[in-house]
Simulated scan of single mutants.
Amino acid sequence: MGTVSIKEVARLARVSPGTVSNVLNRPERVAPTTRERVRQAIRELGFVRHGSASTLRAGHSRTIGLSVMDIGNPFFTDVAAGAEDVASDLGYAVILGNSAGTRSKEERNLLVFAEQRVRGVLITPSDEALGPLDGLRERGISVVLVDHPAHRPDLCSVTVDDVAGGRLAVAHLLDLGVRRIGYLTGPRTIRQCLDRGRGAGQALAAAGLDPETVLETMEAPAMTARAGQEAAERLIASGRLPEAIFCANDLLALGVLRGLLQAGVGVPGDVALMGYDDIDFAAASAVSLSSVRQPTYRLGQIAAELLLEECGDPGAHAHRQIVFQPELVVRESTGGPGRTAATTRRRALTCSPAPKPRDSTLKEIR
């Protein structure tokens, strides 16, 4: 079978060769019905364009890069799924890079993206230094921050208000009557951990409580289930179990849950447990996990839309900083609806009715 040409695709789709070219290179400029008709003709004829030739002509490829901190965390898997769905619909492929939260690996990812002539980059930065990203932009590669605020008007970002999330989590625990809380956080270099801890402190201050006496912060070397289980084992060995533990993400919380249950510690009967992210495993764990929900798939979608909008027309693009509001999800690990005060806390503390989850709201800051 010979090579299928653009002209043959155009003839079958009843459009001009220029329209076929736009579908291949600038699909956002073509009406959806026409775009689908051209793609159907491409599928029927088995047309494959010469990728390297088109890349050389355009100076970039039909790909975008996505660099995340931990692809083993379902949070980032969901973000990637949202971004990939948007990119795929507009004819882009996604190259995934896992930085493991380290600057050195992140910089290697960015170098690979540049070598592959990606059109744009979505990234959850490993730290606050954004110099390497400015280098990409000087090459004509658009950049959008994901799960990290831009703090500057010339860069798009999509994130969640983690300070508000920390407040929600600890305010809920305080409503249960808890007065000794452990905050299990990840490495202090991770902004999200710091913001969630800051929110926890704000909830205590709002309740007129002294964070120094109520909240004990414990730092795990990684935000994984194994690190969470090891932290639980250390707490049990120390004999200093708090009344509640708030974890900076669900993986830590699931590890803590496993460690506590294996040691015969009741959850929530002996220790109330709160996670963050509301990954799928949170609802399916042995004791369903209360958590702070983030719209992970939506984060990826919006970020990709902003990126490809900028790629399509950089001159007309208006940079935006999108902030989602988190949502409290109450389940068994903190005493879900229907539990009595006597079974909820070992000290028979009064449990207020579980608040109903609020709809996530989107706030845009220009």
Rank of each mutant, 00 (worst) to 15 (best):
T3V: 10
T185Q: 04
S5L: 10
C247W: 00
I141K: 03
L260A: 07
M218G: 11
N22E: 13
V121K: 02
S142Y: 06
L241S: 09
Q202F: 11
G201L: 02
P353W: 09
E107H: 15
S285I: 05
L90Q: 09
G264M: 01
A164D: 06
G18C: 13
S54F: 10
L176T: 00
L155M: 12
F75W: 01
Y92L: 10
P268N: 08
G59C: 12
A303K: 02
Q116A: 15
L145T: 06
H319W: 10
A203D: 06
R240D: 12
G300K: 00
G335W: 02
S142D: 10
V158A: 01
L349K: 08
A80N: 02
P242S: 09
I123V: 11
R331V: 04
G228V: 01
A81H: 00
D210S: 15
G51R: 11
H151P: 07
S61Y: 05
E128V: 10
T340N: 09
R331S: 05
Y297R: 00
S285H: 03
D278M: 07
E364V: 13
P337A: 13
R366A: 14
D278K: 05
T55R: 11
H60N: 07
D70N: 09
P326I: 04
A207L: 11
T343S: 09
R358D: 15
P125D: 15
L349C: 15
V256P: 06
L254A: 05
L174N: 04
E309C: 10
G2D: 13
A354P: 05
L145A: 07
R62F: 12
R26M: 08
C156L: 08
I365S: 12
V144F: 04
P295H: 05
A341G: 11
R29F: 15
G266P: 00
S16H: 09
I322P: 02
R137H: 11
A13R: 04
P221M: 13
A206I: 07
Y92I: 03
V265P: 05
